[in-house]
């Protein structure tokens, strides 16, 4: 398959970020990384959450972690030793974070070195950012070409996303070098059409209005996400679930395809369903 940038030696670096914690960054990184790999692109997902490693659990490879991202930065291990090949999806690799270190272990030169080496082999590099706007998050976004800003439909998450958008446009390498700005995508997760209808949650258009960036996808709140996390399977592989299908739509849009938004409407319960409390 053709390389995404059209350029043979350059992988596309995508940061999955949000500012706020618990909105679904790691779930989204795992799902989107898997989705891109399913399309035949060689993809690596890097966990930047040093000290709070989670990606390995979501990907179900926690028992196979020997070396990690910090080991590679410190040249205690080679990339080949640290990369974990996903068992389910071809062309997908995971670079886990170190659980015993903190974010200071990430140096700009170190991260750059690892990314440059990965860029030789991979088409897509997904950086799973930690929460916050401090060093870890800034390291994850610094070298990015594109950003997926994961937001929940509630005011504090939206404001934090707004903040991280400001940092993307001012503190990234592209901003510092005056290059074309990082391409921004809004991914709305944990969307609850019923609660939106009741006015308890912001609607898609409310969030779009506040953040003013293109919408990549809306992932409905779904039990399948929790189930998938606990099983260590990216939810995108669950093609029965609305969340899995919505992530696949988002990956298609990321690749430039047109997909209508779905799962935004309140599911009308039929008479019997209501009667039976279904």
């Amino acid at each position: 398959m053709k390389r995404p940038s059209g350029d043979t030696a350059l992988a596309k670096i995508i940061v999955v970020t949000s500012g706020k914690g618990g909105v679904g960054k790691t779930t989204s990184s795992a799902a989107i990384g898997t989705g891109i790999a399913l399309k035949g692109f060689k993809t690596v997902i890097i966990d930047f959450d040093v000290g709070l490693r989670n990606l390995d659990l979501i990907m179900g490879c926690e028992r196979r972690v020997v070396y990690d991202f910090v080991n590679v930065i410190n040249k205690e291990a080679t990339l080949t030793q640290a990369l974990i090949k996903d068992k389910r999806t071809k062309d997908l690799f995971i670079l886990p974070a170190s659980q015993t270190r903190d974010k200071d272990a990430l140096t700009q030169e170190g991260v750059q070195g690892v990314l440059e080496e990965l860029a030789k082999d991979f088409d897509y590099i997904i950086c799973d950012s930690p929460a916050g706007i401090e060093k870890g998050a800034q390291m994850a976004l610094y070298f990015a070409d594109a950003a997926i800003v994961v937001t929940n439909p509630e005011v504090s998450s939206v404001r934090d996303s707004d903040r991280i958008l400001g940092i993307l446009q001012s503190k990234s390498r592209r901003a510092e070098e005056g290059k074309e700005p990082i391409e921004e995508h809004l991914l709305l997760t944990r969307y609850h059409p019923e609660r939106v209808a009741l006015g308890e949650m912001l609607s898609v258009s409310d969030v779009e209005d506040i953040l003013a960036i293109p919408l990549l996808g809306v992932i409905p709140e779904s039990e399948a996400v929790l189930k998938a996390s606990n099983q260590g399977t990216p939810v995108i592989l669950d093609t029965e679930s609305a969340a899995g299908l919505a992530y696949m739509d988002a990956v298609d849009r990321l690749m430039g395809e047109e997909r209508p938004l779905r799962f935004l409407d309140v599911q009308k319960k039929g008479f019997f369903k209501r009667l039976l409390g279904g």
């Binding site: 404001r159 934090d160 903040r163 958008l165």
Partner: peptide, 8 residues
């Protein structure tokens, strides 16, 4: 020409 984001 770009949005002024929270914190800027």
């Amino acid at each position: 020409t770009k949005p002024i984001r929270s914190g800027q």
